[in-house]
Amino acid sequence: MRLSQSQQQVLQHYMNSHGMQNQSLKSDLLDHLSCKVEELMDEEKLGFEEALERAQIQSMPNGPQEFERDLKLLTTQKSTIMIRKIAFLGGYVSALCLCLSILFFALSSFENKKNALRMNSAQMEYELQENNHPTAFHNHPIYKNMVAQSAESAIVAYRQYSRAEKLLMASIFLLVTTFLPYLFFAGYRKQSPEVEPI
């Protein structure tokens, strides 16, 4: 038995009432539902209304929009996994950069502190030596040796500080461009309500 035009319109209205976006899938499901209704009317001698009700229960118990959701899941699965991988890798490298940055910053601070202590210890060493006049300290070999070591130390501290700065920038950049967008997007998706059928 073939469905009449008015019966086809009832089915069309049913599909439209669920607000499906994918027209291609919609026409597939409309044809499928029509075939199913025709089969039930033919084989079980049901009236159109009853056949439609049974076809809906058998073929689309949760409505046709469920098919759209499943299709979306199926076709975006690979890209979702890839996005997740990138986000987590970005988050990991960002955390690694942050740790290294803290380490270099600490090393740089230690180097500076070491320098100040070296200065104090050299002065103390000089003062402890007998017959030394405080004003002549700048000409003493202890002072000259200390200045050379301090210069070396300052260069090392500067390099470490510079590394810490670069790593901190890289860490923030990676966090802002990979992990944070994913985190906020995932949170947004959890919070956003399902689209109501029109």
Binding site: F67, L71, L73
Partner: peptide, 27 residues
Amino acid sequence: EGSLYPTLHALTKEGYLVTESVMVDNR
């Protein structure tokens, strides 16, 4: 149906299938 159509569409998107639309009984 919940398995068939998403799979058919996924296969079409992946380039394994092609569709051809024909008007049959007003649909």
